[in-house]
């Protein structure tokens, strides 16, 4: 789709969808029986439907997209540049002590977690990060959109 078409779709649709016309109709009162839904039988051999594992993400990418929303963002303690033991990082991620959520192997794979824990343990402090009780800066750091 061309950029122009995308632009047309955007400018045409937003006013309709956001405004007064966002009222929808009721179901057809004269509706009658419909055909049976599509069905799929359970296959005899399931192995063919296994998805190959996704390639592991880099530790920095996981940190920015998950950890960094709280740690260093006024919400949770700073964890970079502190030489925290990698084993402790792994434990925290999997168990979620106190106010921290736990992250499952389906969210951060064992291999990714191992690399992430080492990266956090060895990473340098980022001067732009803020601990929870740090003074609030004049302008809040804007996330790259």
């Amino acid at each position: 789709m061309s950029a122009q078409a995308v632009h047309r779709a955007r400018t045409g649709a937003w006013a309709v969808a956001c405004g007064w016309l966002m009222v929808v109709g009721a179901a057809d009162a004269n509706a009658s029986a419909r055909p049976a839904p599509q069905t799929t039988a359970v296959p005899a051999s399931i192995a063919q439907f296994r998805r190959p594992p996704a390639p592991p993400r880099a530790p920095e990418a996981i940190y920015v997209r998950t950890c960094g929303y709280c740690h260093g963002a006024h919400v949770a303690p700073i964890i970079r540049g502190r030489g925290l033991p990698a084993e402790m990082v792994e434990l925290y991620v999997r168990t979620g002590p106190r106010g921290m959520p736990a992250f499952r192997p389906t969210e951060i794979s064992p291999a990714e977690l191992k690399a992430l824990a080492v990266w956090v343990s060895q990473s340098k402090a980022d001067p732009n990060e803020r601990a929870p009780l740090d003074p609030i800066p004049a302008a809040t750091k804007e996330r790259a959109q």
Partner: peptide, 13 residues
């Protein structure tokens, strides 16, 4: 944003 999760630290998680 996950900033509202800060409320979990108010009183021990």
């Amino acid at each position: 944003t996950l900033e509202e999760k800060g409320i979990l630290r108010w009183r021990g998680g």
